[in-house]
């Protein structure tokens, strides 16, 4: 079984985003960029399934600028086998990304598509579900556990009330939550090997997908700033304050 893992290059999660003064977006110039953390978990899960003999090949795909090659190489260094970069210099919305992935999935016929539940830049949380819809296949979102059994997969999902387990027919789309696994660090031999693994570069036009945005971002602004309040000296002082607030 082939596993396809779509990934995204995003602002590193340790970097505090700065809104540009002209309100046109978040300043990414010279900022550290990384593989989206949820996608890293998806790559790790796919590589583990290959190590267990359940998957035969791990294909990673990214839609983005030429520099998205970096995160594809990271995934290859973690153990993915080959990569496709669909190069596009403008921002591509989740629906268009799902359409590109749909064409690739039709062509590659993966048994499982694993991807992060959301990218930590636009926080959309859409691509996996949209891809599942376009392919007409089942989806297991926010997965904290995944067991492949023959022609189906058991997915344990992190839901508001706790956990729930679904049984999905393969091929299926699974999106990863934080607790699915702890991704490995790429080893030095892995990094060296990744340099020679195949990476194909395509364009959205190669897949016949129109990436014209449906949404216009009119402005991006800073959230309301919340200032620090008062310090109380001890528990007694805190109790007084809580009583004033009517909490206790």
């Amino acid at each position: 079984m082939k596993i396809m893992v779509p990934v995204k290059r995003v602002l590193d999660y340790n970097v505090k985003p700065r809104v540009k003064a002209d309100g046109s977006g978040v300043d990414l110039a010279n900022a550290k960029m990384s593989l989206n953390p949820f996608d890293e978990i998806a790559v790790e899960e796919a590589v583990r399934l290959k190590e267990q003999g359940i998957a035969s090949e791990v294909l990673v795909v990214s839609v983005g600028q030429a520099k998205a090659q970096d995160v594809l190489r990271t995934a290859l260094a973690m153990g993915a086998d080959r990569a496709i970069l669909v190069q596009c210099d403008t921002e591509v919305e989740p629906l268009a990304i799902a359409k590109i992935l749909q064409v690739i999935a039709d062509d590659e016929a993966p048994g499982l598509i694993l991807l992060g539940k959301q990218a930590i830049d636009d926080d959309s949380n859409q691509v996996g579900q949209m891809l599942a819809a376009l392919l007409g296949r089942p989806q297991g979102t926010f997965a904290s556990k995944l067991v492949v059994e023959g022609d189906h997969v058991l997915v344990t999902r992190e839901v508001d009330g706790g956990l729930e387990t679904l049984r999905l027919s393969l091929p299926a789309i699974v999106t990863t939550d934080l607790r699915l696994n702890e991704p490995r660090y790429a080893s030095l031999p892995g990094i060296m090997k990744a340099k020679s693994k195949p990476l194909a570069t395509k364009t959205p036009a190669d897949y016949g997908v129109d990436v014209t945005p449906r949404l216009t971002t009119l402005k991006v602004s800073e959230p309301a700033v919340r200032g620090a309040g008062i310090r109380v000296a001890d528990v007694a002082g805190l109790v007084v304050k809580l009583r004033e607030l009517g909490v206790a």
């Binding site: 985003p17 978040v26 991006v220 602004s221 800073e222 959230p223």
Partner: peptide, 8 residues
């Protein structure tokens, strides 16, 4: 967006 560090 960005975990609420910006509002679009």
């Amino acid at each position: 967006i960005y975990a609420g560090n910006a509002i679009a």
